[in-house]
């Protein structure tokens, strides 16, 4: 009885550990190929456009509404102890350290991890990946490396743009709804914002970009057969990327800011 219970508990644990091991090995393989030729620059360029440029609208919209809502919340909370004046600085710090990278990462995970997993998964079930091998091309190097590099490079830029738009969202709400003076709001934002507030968010962005593309590629390349297999791979890519982003965010925040 006890043995059966332990067995039923142990099996999923072993499966989870094995899955973590497979992802870690996949990540090591991808990283190992980044600096070794051949380099597929055209694929890298096209991935930068797909992942970076095409994600700008969704990241921008997310940031502007988040910045605005953040200003309203901080104002409402701050007014309980006469601290309404902290709105500009808290919006800026909140956007750059946390909300810019995390929400941007989650939105990109939804948009990019799903699209990568679906594309590579479809390539697998239609034998395009086998075709790459017969054409003397390493699928990992040709498909995964450009996407992972592109996402790692593009995400900090998206985060920076998101930060700026988010702060602008807070400023817009501040001057239109909360009676802040525009110049004073901007001065408060700049005065209290430190370089590392922005830098830490950009580092987080790079890590989240790596996670997003890695999960998309991993699940796509391990997709099961048929439409159902591709659908399952897509779902797994988004879920695992989102959870890993939140987990990595906690670890990075602990590493950067716990004193």
């Amino acid at each position: 009885m006890i043995e059966a219970t332990l067995g039923s508990l142990g099996r999923p644990v072993l499966q989870a550990v094995a899955a973590v091991g497979r992802v870690a090995l996949f990540a090591l393989q991808v990283v190992g190929h980044i600096l070794r030729p051949p380099f597929y620059l055209r694929e890298l360029g096209s991935s930068l456009v797909q992942i970076g440029w095409h994600s700008l609208p969704v990241v921008g919209l997310t940031a502007i509404f988040t910045g605005g809502a953040l200003a309203l919340q901080i104002y409402a909370g701050g007014s309980r102890f006469n601290a309404e004046s902290v709105v500009p600085s808290i919006v800026a710090i909140g956007m750059t350290r946390e909300l810019g990278p995390v929400l941007g990462g989650l939105m990109v995970a939804a948009r990019v991890a799903s699209s990568i997993a679906a594309e590579i998964g479809t390539m697998k079930v239609t034998e395009q990946i086998d075709a790459l091998v017969t054409l003397s091309t390493n699928p990992l190097k040709y498909l995964a490396v450009p996407r992972v590099v592109a996402a790692t490079l593009a995400m900090p830029v998206l985060v920076a743009v998101g930060d700026a738009i988010g702060i602008m969202g807070g400023w817009l709400v501040g001057i239109t709804r909360l009676d802040f003076n525009s110049a004073a709001y901007l001065k408060n934002t700049v005065d209290f914002l430190e370089v590392w507030d922005i830098g830490s968010g950009l580092v987080k962005g790079a890590v989240f970009g790596f996670i997003v593309a890695l999960m998309g590629c991993y699940h796509g390349m391990n997709s099961a057969r048929g439409a159902q297999g591709v659908g399952a791979a897509t779902k797994a890519a988004v879920v695992s990327a989102s959870v890993l982003i939140l987990a990595a965010n906690y670890i990075l925040t602990e590493a950067f800011f716990s004193s």
Binding site: P38, E127, A131, L135, S136
Partner: peptide, 30 residues
């Protein structure tokens, strides 16, 4: 692998590449 060519059952053409890039895939790399 350079000694082999293969025609796959469904064609297995790369959707994102033009027809001539599919045909010349090996010639453009390596």
């Amino acid at each position: 692998l350079a000694r082999f060519g293969m025609l796959f059952q469904g064609g297995a053409l790369f959707d994102s590449l033009r027809v001539w890039e599919n045909v010349a895939f090996r010639l453009l790399r390596g």
